[in-house]
């Protein structure tokens, strides 16, 4: 390694390069986000409903206070919570299961893994259309199958009953997003040294025990990443709801998550000041959730960093 004293000249050069290299990306992001973000924040301090132009005024943080007492917002928050419970916990658990399943050696493993990419490649809009065709109450194939099997005797109205619609949405989101997470799980499983399993099987540990004692702890970093990514996606889910429920928020608002409510408030009700405060709140929630996962699971993060 070079001596400490001779470094500073090189360092200065390095630094110049570092800034030069980071600038274009930084500028692109700043150019497109700085103004909109500031705009959004300023907007959130306004009472601004386009349909009441005369009532426009600065209200400071009043919109945020209003959020805390707004039943519709709190209900959508609870709905988002339920949605996340299934898509984040259920989804990540499912993804890890899929990963473990496809990490074992069997014929056709490569093909099976490739097929994980199918849902990932389907754009959310197409995903929404696809599940709408499948769960349609009149012509949907889901009903045809269930009726042929004799599980139900008349068509189920999947997209008319609130709980069922939320279920379909969860199913559609999990279908689309978890295979990608499974892929990451597989990648991470492959980096677990095989010899620790060998040692374990000599110790006579069963496969269940091996999973809990070896696989899972080794997946910790990955699981954190998956939880963060899936939480972000789940809280911000929009396209699928929009397409699946024909631009509404589902029967009895069953799929109106916070992000969808922010959309309705901003675009349908034209209550843009309040809608902006909702969006900023969502942003804060996403950051808090991500931070929560990092704090909970990320302790060893520093060690793994070179």
């Amino acid at each position: 390694m070079l001596g400490r004293t001779t470094l500073s000249a090189v360092e200065r050069k390095d630094r110049r390069f570092a800034i030069f290299a980071a600038t274009p990306a930084g500028l692109t992001i700043a150019a497109l986000f700085l103004y909109p973000l500031v705009y959004a924040f300023v907007l959130s301090l306004y009472e601004l409903n386009d349909k009441r132009p005369e009532a426009t005024r600065v209200v400071g943080l009043a919109n945020y206070v209003r959020l805390l007492g707004d039943d519709a917002f709190l209900a959508s928050l609870a709905r988002t919570g339920v949605f996340c419970l299934f898509t984040v916990f259920g989804g990540v658990a499912f993804a890890v299961g899929m990963g473990v399943l496809l990490n074992q050696r069997f014929r056709g493993r490569a093909v099976a893994r490739v097929l994980l990419l199918v849902p990932w490649a389907v754009p959310p809009v197409v995903n929404g259309i696809m599940w709408k065709l499948i769960f349609d109450g009149t012509y949907g194939v889901a009903n045809s199958i269930l009726m042929t099997l004799g599980i139900v005797d008349r068509p189920v109205q999947w997209l008319a009953v609130p709980d069922l619609t939320l279920g379909v949405l969860i199913f559609a989101e999990v279908w689309k997003l978890t295979p990608f997470l499974a892929l990451m799980t597989i990648a991470s499983l492959q980096s677990i040294p095989a010899n620790i399993y060998r040692a374990a099987s000599i110790d006579g540990a069963g496969s269940w025990q091996r999973f809990w004692r070896m696989t899972l702890p080794n997946l910790r970093g990955t699981i954190m990443f998956l939880l963060i990514v899936q939480s972000m996606w789940s809280i911000k889910v929009f396209d699928s709801i929009y397409v699946l429920t024909g631009g509404s928020g589902g029967p009895a608002g069953a799929t109106t998550t916070v992000n969808f409510l922010a959309y309705l408030t901003t675009f349908s009700y034209l209550d843009r000041g309040y809608g902006a405060s909702m969006s900023i709140a969502i942003m804060v929630i996403v950051i808090l959730v991500a931070a929560f996962w990092v704090l909970l699971l990320g302790r060893r993060d520093k060690e793994t960093r070179r």
């Binding site: 103004y35 500031v38 907007l43 132009p53």
Partner: peptide, 23 residues
């Protein structure tokens, strides 16, 4: 600089402007 720029921008952001001009 960013903060300053942001503040300046904030000044330019006049959410109410649209309505008033065409009332």
């Amino acid at each position: 600089g960013l903060v300053l720029g942001g503040t300046a921008l904030a000044g330019c952001v006049s959410p109410g402007g649209s309505a008033g001009s065409s009332a």
